[in-house]
Simulated assay, not measured.
Amino acid sequence: MDSNDVRREWADRSGEYSPTYYAHLGSDEASELLVSTLAERVSRDASVLELGCSSGRHLAALREAGFSDLTGVDVNADAIDVLVETYSELAATGTFHVAAIEDFLPDLPDDAFDVVFTVETLQHIHPDEAWVFEEIARVTGEQLVVVENEDREPGTTMEVRGGIPLYFRDWRSEFTSRGLVEVDSAATKRDTVHVFEPGR
């Protein structure tokens, strides 16, 4: 798959790993970790952006915890429709965009959001689009929280069900090499959580 194929796969996704699939699952361990991590580090009125928000389950958990300035972006247009149906209060108060993050981020100013976070989204970024990690670092004002898979050797690629490519990377290195400082990390059952701050 080239980078365009990967984006199309997610834009058209239905069934397993679709927005409806994740809405049915609801909040999870990653949601709880995001809430506890951000509650310790930023105020409840911090501006928060989720990259790859799908149906909004993690943002919904943050809203329930009192965070009020919430934005999400997802390449799948159905994600926002499912979000409106499933998390109507979040939909009414948050801001949501249908776009690939590779198209969305370059138009943002530096430090556009106090907090940027991802959950199992960056692991699907094609190697040709790795420049987007620089954009993520650029728009992060205070905290970047990355919840991604790290259970194989960096540089390894595998396909998960449905032929979706998963690209394994050393997330600490990816972002410290772009000027961020890692301030915390933890393991979940599925992923590794890294918390970064701008080094400037």
Rank of each mutant, 00 (worst) to 15 (best):
residue 197 E to N: 01
residue 89 E to Y: 05
residue 59 L to S: 02
residue 48 V to L: 10
residue 136 I to R: 02
residue 169 R to Q: 11
residue 158 M to A: 08
residue 9 E to P: 00
residue 41 R to T: 09
residue 60 A to C: 04
residue 75 V to H: 02
residue 19 P to F: 13
residue 177 S to E: 15
residue 41 R to Q: 07
residue 25 L to F: 02
residue 160 V to A: 02
residue 67 F to E: 04
residue 83 L to P: 05
residue 57 R to K: 14
residue 66 G to R: 10
residue 139 V to P: 03
residue 188 T to A: 02
residue 42 V to L: 06
residue 75 V to G: 05
residue 168 F to M: 09
residue 92 A to N: 08
residue 55 S to M: 13
residue 29 E to I: 15
residue 38 L to V: 13
residue 80 I to P: 00
residue 29 E to Q: 15
residue 37 T to A: 11
residue 24 H to L: 13
residue 84 V to M: 01
residue 199 G to D: 05
residue 27 S to R: 13
residue 18 S to D: 07
residue 32 E to F: 04
residue 59 L to V: 10
residue 183 V to I: 14
residue 160 V to S: 04
residue 71 T to Q: 08
residue 7 R to G: 04
residue 76 N to C: 15
residue 9 E to A: 12
residue 53 C to R: 00
residue 31 S to E: 02
residue 168 F to K: 06
residue 43 S to T: 15
residue 145 V to P: 03
residue 137 A to N: 09
residue 59 L to R: 02
residue 161 R to D: 13
residue 24 H to P: 00
residue 160 V to T: 12
residue 149 N to P: 01
residue 55 S to A: 15
residue 4 N to C: 04
residue 66 G to L: 13
residue 133 F to I: 14
residue 50 E to V: 14
residue 76 N to V: 15
residue 39 A to N: 06
residue 102 E to G: 04
residue 187 A to V: 06
residue 70 L to K: 04
residue 100 A to N: 07
residue 64 E to K: 14
residue 176 T to R: 03
residue 42 V to D: 03
residue 159 E to M: 14
residue 120 E to I: 15
residue 182 E to C: 12
residue 113 F to C: 09
residue 133 F to E: 03
residue 25 L to V: 06
residue 53 C to Q: 07
residue 15 G to W: 12
residue 172 R to P: 00
residue 15 G to S: 11
residue 154 P to A: 11
residue 11 A to C: 07
residue 169 R to K: 14
residue 130 A to L: 05
residue 133 F to D: 03
residue 74 D to S: 12
residue 16 E to D: 11
residue 129 E to S: 15
residue 134 E to S: 15
residue 125 I to L: 07
residue 149 N to G: 01
residue 146 V to W: 03
residue 10 W to C: 04
residue 126 H to W: 08
residue 41 R to F: 06
residue 121 T to F: 12
residue 197 E to L: 02
residue 179 G to S: 12
residue 163 G to K: 07
residue 198 P to T: 14
